[in-house]
Amino acid sequence: MLDIVIASRQAEIIPGFVVKRLLPYQLRRMVGPFIFMDHGGPVAIPNAVHSNLDVLPHPHIGLSTVSYLFSGEIMHRDSLGVEQAIKPGEVNWMTAGKGIAHSERFEDPAIRAGGSLEMIQTWVALPEKDEEADPAFYNYKPEQLPIFTDAGIWMRLIAGEAFGLKSAVKTSSPLFYMHVALKAGARFGIPTGYAERGVYIVHGSVLVNGKAYLAGQLLVFSKGVDPVIIAAEQCTLMMLGGENLGQRYIWWNFVSSSRERIEQAKEDWIQGRIKLPPTDNSEYIPLPEDRSKPSGGPAPNTLS
């Protein structure tokens, strides 16, 4: 019934900030077009260390980064000149295409005072025809995203189409991405009609076919398998999936259908050919020392 159960692994993306990493995984690199998934927090960020946790400007190619917060606030700046604070329930959807750099900083006074931060970050691989598209950035407010409610069920469709709903978020391939909250005993299905589908348990636990699964696990299902998810207790889930786009290589922050393109991106970053954010260009993350070739397997520690 289940293709695979992926248990989160700890990854320190910057000193002092450890996240739960789900994708890529050695035995399952992608779920539909989703090639990367981190769950950060919940964590309190004291004023004394918040600046050390800022994610400095860094590059991407060949993907869209998707930031979704449960609590806290992060300031995004990118090569296009965008400055956007992302808040809980909003969606920051940045398409890197042929190349973009961005930073993520903790500037909200509440965060600096020790407030809590919890977020999910995913990367969505682009179809080959869109890998060299011009970079773009969109911020979507909660009121732009469809909501479904029923007895013991609350669901927000972040992106794509599911259960007869369609999100306003612009995507490049068929997919779905959902935030689901269930009360104990509630029953919920997963969208049908997609080749690959996953359910990540953010909080709580669920039953599938009588077996319990716990927070920190990503359950991956094939097309044609339509399980019923039963909340064993109050729980929060992220559901995601879509159509398989074919093989992708990943190295650091770069994703591409071509190994050679990733090698070019490395050199582009070294030579300064990927522009820094115009209002955040005094520092940046250099290319990692690891000069290995792009891999079809797990990436090294990765910043989004």
Rank of each mutant, 00 (worst) to 15 (best):
M1F: 06
D3Q: 09
A7G: 12
S8W: 04
Q10G: 13
P15H: 08
V19Y: 02
L23R: 13
L27F: 14
H39G: 06
H39M: 09
G40D: 05
P42T: 08
G62P: 15
Y68P: 10
F70Q: 05
D78H: 09
G81L: 10
K87M: 12
P88W: 01
M94T: 14
A101H: 02
S103E: 05
R105Y: 05
R112K: 13
A113I: 07
P135S: 06
Q144E: 11
P146T: 10
P146Y: 01
F148G: 12
G152A: 04
I153N: 04
R156H: 08
F163A: 11
L175G: 07
K183S: 10
G185W: 04
A195N: 01
E196F: 06
I201R: 02
H203I: 07
H203A: 13
N209W: 00
A212N: 08
G216Y: 03
F221V: 06
V228P: 08
V228R: 01
I229F: 01
I230T: 08
E233W: 01
L237P: 07
M238L: 07
M239S: 04
M239L: 07
N244T: 06
L245F: 00
S257A: 15
R259W: 01
E260Q: 11
R261T: 15
E283H: 03
Y284M: 15
L287I: 00
P294L: 00
S295E: 01
G296P: 03
L303R: 09
